[in-house]
């Protein structure tokens, strides 16, 4: 833009002129402003965060969960009984919650409060580790699987083979030959949990893989990982986040099923799954044995659903305005 001429008829800087002079003023030249092309500074994650915060229920639930998580550590300390010091007592069995036993007692007369909170700690730990591991493994494998055609066959075979052998067989063999412990359970669950995520990601990659902008990228010679990370993954974020959110409660449920079959955690490691399984026989008569662990599991599940959904919605760039 040529600003140094004033050969526009009828326009004199600072000069006098007709009444039209009042309608127009000269714009000043600023170099930085001239180069400016976008309207506002946009940071994806900050937008996501802001969007997420707008969803009140989700924010409230995440607070609730954080408080719950901290409380699992605090509760053991403030309770009347230490978890390691619990002992069976025939005279105290099946007591409803009262002043001394805040959550009542179980079928052996042991304090339920300490049991529930200690189990919650274990379950949350296990679910978190397994969830993160599953997602990492699943996303990486899913992306490669869906994008690199030559590997599609290999991964499909691998998926089919691992998926079609009933997990029970693996879990029984592992339990018999390797043993049962927290670490073993976490590793085994991750090793079998990546499958549905990978498959889901692979299907979505299929959908986006051959869009024109990807063809363009390939033509331009963009590297594999950059395409995956920058072109395709952003479309998948909402799905990934939802999967992560859902894997946490499903790990807790799956661990409960495994305990039901005797393949779960070591008998000395309590977990919400085990408490729920035991409560099943008693809950119609003594509902509190079920209600307390179920409420905690429900709070965890609800939190991750709401937060997951809200975060998922927030991750969609079209919501960022």
């Amino acid at each position: 833009m040529d600003m140094t001429t004033n050969n526009k008829p009828g326009l004199h800087p600072g000069g006098g002129g007709s009444a039209a002079d009042d309608l127009f003023t000269f714009a000043e030249y600023r170099h930085a402003q001239a180069e400016f092309t976008a309207s506002t500074e946009y940071s994806y994650w900050r937008s996501v965060w802001r969007n997420f915060l707008r969803n009140k229920p989700a924010v409230i639930m995440s607070f609730v969960f954080i408080i719950l998580f901290i409380f699992t550590f605090v509760a053991g300390v403030i309770g009347n009984y230490r978890y390691d010091e619990l002992r069976p007592d025939n005279k105290l069995i099946f007591l409803f919650p009262n002043d001394e036993f805040w959550f009542g007692t179980d079928n052996l007369g042991r304090d339920y409060w300490s049991q529930v909170w200690y189990a919650a700690q274990t379950s949350i730990k296990l679910a978190a580790i397994v969830g993160v591991g599953e997602i990492l493994l699943g996303v990486v494998i899913g992306l490669v699987w869906g994008y690199v055609r030559s590997l599609d066959r290999f991964f499909t075979e691998l998926y089919n083979v691992v998926n079609n052998v009933p997990t029970i067989i693996y879990m029984t063999l592992i339990a018999l030959m390797v043993g049962q412990s927290f670490l073993i359970m976490a590793v085994s669950l991750i090793c079998f949990g990546w499958l549905p995520t990978a498959r889901n990601i692979r299907n979505m990659v299929f959908i986006y893989r051959d869009r024109e902008y990807n063809l363009a990228s390939r033509c331009l010679g963009t590297g594999l990982w950059r395409i995956l990370w920058r072109n395709i993954l952003p479309y998948l974020i909402s799905v990934v986040v939802l999967r992560l959110a859902l894997s946490i409660p499903s790990t807790i449920a799956y661990e409960s099923t495994l305990s039901y079959l005797g393949l779960g955690l070591d008998v000395n490691t309590p977990s919400l799954g085990i408490l729920l399984r035991n409560a099943r026989s008693y809950f119609l008569d003594f509902p509190y044995l079920l209600i307390f662990p179920a409420v905690i599991v429900s709070v965890i599940t609800i939190t991750f659903y709401l937060v997951g959904n809200a975060f998922s919605d927030a991750c969609d760039p079209r919501n960022h305005l």
Binding site: I93, F94, N107, S281, F286
Partner: peptide
């Protein structure tokens, strides 16, 4: 009867 039913 199991333990819970019996107690109730």
């Amino acid at each position: 009867l199991n333990e819970a039913n019996l107690q109730t």
